[in-house]
Amino acid sequence: MAWREPAWFTRPALRFAFQRGIEACGPTARIVRPPRRYPGGFALAVHLDLPDIPEQTVTIVFGQYSPHTPHIYSDRPSESPHRYAEGALCIWYPYDPAEQQWTRRKEEWWRLTGEWPGQEAPHHTPEPQS
């Protein structure tokens, strides 16, 4: 296997800067153990208590093989059609143009009407890149 530069989150200063950046927006965040499927990864749990959405904890996970693409999990609501098989939120399909990617307004519309505005992307779990 060829040498690869270590992931950004292996440096404590960068992990803490990421955490401080989220906390600067208001929510509290804490570093947590990543799920087993992301060994050697980095995870941050963010508690959200915002108007118009249920109180929830969102966990942002970076894997060692995908250090620049976060996997995002929410502890509620779980019935969203925009989740991968393992439960991660389908926030965007990496190959979509900007106008087709997830936005908060589209999610709000779906929660109000049950209709997703726009085309549906496949929700298969992407394979880790090595």
Score class of each variant (00 low, 15 high):
42 F>H: 04
56 Q>E: 11
59 T>Y: 04
107 E>M: 06
88 A>R: 04
3 W>R: 14
7 A>L: 08
91 I>Y: 06
44 L>D: 01
100 Q>S: 06
49 D>R: 05
82 H>F: 12
105 R>M: 02
18 F>M: 07
31 I>M: 03
10 T>K: 12
103 T>I: 07
81 P>Y: 04
49 D>C: 00
14 L>P: 06
17 A>D: 14
19 Q>W: 13
37 R>Q: 05
65 Y>I: 00
124 H>G: 15
21 G>S: 04
47 H>K: 07
13 A>Q: 12
72 I>Q: 08
29 A>F: 07
112 L>A: 13
59 T>K: 02
28 T>L: 06
82 H>E: 13
29 A>L: 01
89 L>A: 06
122 P>D: 15
97 P>Q: 07
9 F>P: 13
32 V>E: 01
35 P>T: 00
94 P>A: 02
6 P>L: 09
93 Y>Q: 09
15 R>E: 12
35 P>N: 00
2 A>K: 15
60 I>W: 14
109 W>T: 10
1 M>D: 15
52 D>W: 02
63 G>N: 08
88 A>N: 10
122 P>M: 12
125 T>A: 11
68 H>F: 08
6 P>W: 12
32 V>Q: 02
126 P>C: 09
37 R>G: 03
76 R>I: 03
66 S>M: 11
76 R>S: 04
44 L>R: 00
56 Q>T: 10
74 S>Y: 10
103 T>Q: 09
107 E>K: 04
22 I>G: 04
120 E>H: 15
22 I>S: 02
94 P>K: 05
30 R>A: 01
87 G>S: 03
54 P>R: 09
118 G>Q: 12
42 F>I: 02
106 K>V: 03
125 T>F: 13
117 P>I: 07
50 L>E: 10
115 E>A: 01
37 R>P: 13
12 P>T: 10
1 M>F: 15
117 P>Q: 12
5 E>N: 12
26 G>M: 02
11 R>V: 09
86 E>T: 03
114 G>I: 09
73 Y>F: 15
94 P>C: 00
40 G>D: 05
100 Q>D: 11
60 I>C: 10
95 Y>L: 08
64 Q>S: 06
53 I>A: 08
22 I>V: 10
74 S>I: 07
85 A>L: 07
119 Q>Y: 09
18 F>I: 01
